[in-house]
């Protein structure tokens, strides 16, 4: 079993719903974004770099098979789950940020200060909280917590807390374009494996040898 994701760029309309769903569901502190959607080549989001031609690219943790972040973690806080996804133990992380230096995708986020404090800076209403409200432990390890400790690294956990309830990740459920698909990349007959085969699936930075578990399907035409 290797849990992976396919994102169909033909279907992505650049609305950033997945970004917002991810941020809200996972109680991400102010300034922290596990997921982002960009318009490659453009100066601003959703502005075509060439008149009438644009596409959108969602980027989050690629859950690599050869994950440098996992290998550099000195304390095994970043580790691989049995389904192949890469998780961070909020209680184990020492905050050395080696994984952030090691990750070529820029998806890892650090808690530079106490999240309660940064929420105040952002001007959120006092006492306002959002996101999945409970801690989630996997074999005793804290892989999701709504209240982040200061000084630890975090990133997309493939919504492991929702997987336990049989739910798809928040970004998949929140996508109005139905551009995201989750499945078993080890099974050649799975929907995701077929899509990758039939629609020329590609990965980001293949030259880095990280072997991502997130595949993209190229858009047939650019959004206009």
């Amino acid at each position: 079993m290797r849990r992976g994701m396919v994102i169909d760029l033909e279907k992505c309309i650049g609305c950033r719903s997945c970004v917002v769903a991810c941020k809200q569901h996972n109680a991400q502190p102010a300034g922290t974004w596990w997921n982002r959607v960009v318009t490659p080549g453009s100066e601003f989001h959703a502005v075509p770099p060439v008149k009438g031609r644009e596409y959108f690219l969602p980027v989050h943790c690629q859950h690599c098979q050869n994950a440098p972040c996992e290998k550099v973690c000195p304390v095994d806080a970043t580790y691989r789950h049995t389904d192949g996804s890469i998780l961070v133990d909020f209680e184990r992380c020492i905050g050395c940020r080696y994984c952030m230096a090691a990750c070529p995708y820029g998806v890892r986020q650090f808690n530079w200060e106490d999240p309660q404090k940064s929420m105040q800076d952002y001007g959120y209403l006092p006492g306002y909280t959002f996101g999945y409200p409970q801690d989630y432990r996997l074999n005793g390890r804290l892989v999701y917590t709504p209240v982040r400790p200061k000084g630890v690294v975090e990133k997309c956990n493939f919504c492991v807390h929702y997987l336990a309830q049989g739910l798809e990740p928040a970004c998949v459920r929140g996508c109005p374009g139905k551009a995201r698909f989750v499945g078993d990349l080890d099974d050649p007959d799975s929907e995701v494996s077929k899509m990758i085969r039939d629609k020329n699936g590609f990965t980001l930075l293949p030259e880095k040898g990280t072997k991502p578990s997130v595949y993209y399907l190229p858009p047939k035409r650019k959004e206009v």
Binding site: V75, R92, I94, G151
Partner: peptide, 21 residues
């Protein structure tokens, strides 16, 4: 440079041998 210096003992009780650190 360590965000959680009080957890540094983890390097001794949970060292990951692939880490150059």
């Amino acid at each position: 440079d360590i965000g959680q210096p009080l957890r540094l003992y983890n390097i001794f009780i949970h060292p990951k041998l692939t880490s150059p650190l």
